[in-house]
């Protein structure tokens, strides 16, 4: 095992896959000479050169659709979108083209493409550099949506995403880039579509992803001192999400909290809550609680009150513990 930061785990995943398969290449703004605006591709330009680490003009739509064309002709692009907010500039590419190309063309084309982007607050970067938009993509048939909570997960999931034959929206979290964690020296993969029980518990299930997994683990620590046993389920993949693991956990705890950094309304937590209500409502002993950011644009000066954290998860768990049907 070795210790590594999240951002370097991303780099290792890309590097290993580029070593393994010469059709894999990275494209995006400042990914080459500059090494990536968050440093994810540091050193890769020197190793692989400008043909495989491709710097682009500031043109998210252009280079994302270009990657779609390249993927349909046998390449396996990794696209880096500097901030998730900028993905709004390439919605045609992702929603109308990439998500649909395989199905729409009668399975003639496959589009193995990974679109990486960091989301979330933590830099006081304000309304246009802090958004969490994963639910948009989870709502579009044809895309997979993956979110990694720690260095071990980000490496294993990214390698699987690069090998996946389907388009994958791969969401990082800016505050996690500096996070340290332990990973094996040898190669490993983490399957897409499988959740991970990050902590076992018996009283409440917290279903979460990305940074909020770590916040939920902190909340679980705090709550254990109060005698409440929390099970933390990390979805890892938002689309397609792992119903079996979530439902199995709820059948054990009978209480559910869903937690994400995105605004609460219409977030992925709503889909999980709705699916639980449709399919296993009788397993629940109390109403479902949701944790998410307030329904306003991300705040610059009040960011620490805007972004949800462990305290919010703790409150939601206590709220569901107090209620009963």
């Amino acid at each position: 095992m070795k210790d590594i930061r999240y951002i370097f785990a991303i780099k290792e995943a890309m590097e290993e896959e580029m070593d393994r398969d010469e059709n894999v290449f990275l494209i995006g703004e400042d990914v080459g000479l500059a090494g990536g605006s968050f440093g994810a591709s540091k050193g890769l330009y020197e190793k692989f050169g400008p043909d495989r680490i491709v710097d682009t003009p500031i043109s998210e739509l252009g280079f994302t659709s270009l990657a779609a064309g390249a993927a349909s002709c046998g390449l396996r692009p990794i696209v880096e979108i500097m901030f998730m907010d900028f993905v709004t500039c390439c919605m045609d590419s992702i929603v109308n083209q990439i998500a649909k190309m395989r199905y729409m063309f009668g399975n003639q084309y496959t589009v193995p493409i990974v679109i990486r982007m960091p989301e979330g607050g933590g830099l006081n970067a304000g309304p246009q550099h802090s958004q969490c938009l994963e639910a948009w993509f989870a709502h579009v048939p044809g895309l997979k949506v993956v979110m990694a909570a720690n260095p071990y997960d980000v490496k294993g999931l990214l390698k699987s995403a690069i090998r996946d034959e389907n388009p994958v929206i791969f969401i990082e979290n800016k505050t996690l880039h500096a996070m340290k964690g332990s990973i094996p020296e040898e190669e490993y993969l983490i399957p897409i579509g499988k959740a991970d029980v990050k902590r076992e518990g018996t009283d409440v299930t917290v279903v979460s992803a990305s940074r909020l997994v770590n916040e939920s683990l902190k909340a679980a620590d705090l709550l254990s001192k109060e005698g409440i046993s929390v099970e933390v389920v990390d979805l890892r993949t938002i689309q397609p999400w792992d119903r079996e693991t979530v439902f199995t956990s709820i059948a054990k705890t009978h209480r559910l909290v869903v937690a994400h950094e995105a605004v609460k309304q219409f977030g992925f937590g709503a889909e999980i809550a709705a699916a639980v209500a449709e399919e296993i409502l009788d397993e629940l002993d109390a109403p479902i609680m949701r944790v998410g950011a307030p329904f306003v644009p991300a705040s610059y000066s009040l960011e620490k009150y805007y972004v949800p954290g462990a305290e919010d998860v703790k409150k939601a768990v206590l709220a569901t513990m107090e209620r009963t049907f």
Binding site: G62, S65, A68, G69, A70, L75, D92, N96
Partner: peptide
């Protein structure tokens, strides 16, 4: 590579095909 229901959308996609040809 497909007709396209979105005006202009095929232009960068074809450019991607050209990129792939050069890459390979």
């Amino acid at each position: 590579m497909g007709a396209n229901g979105i005006v202009g959308a095929g232009i960068p996609i074809a450019t991607g095909a050209a990129f792939a040809a050069k890459y390979k």
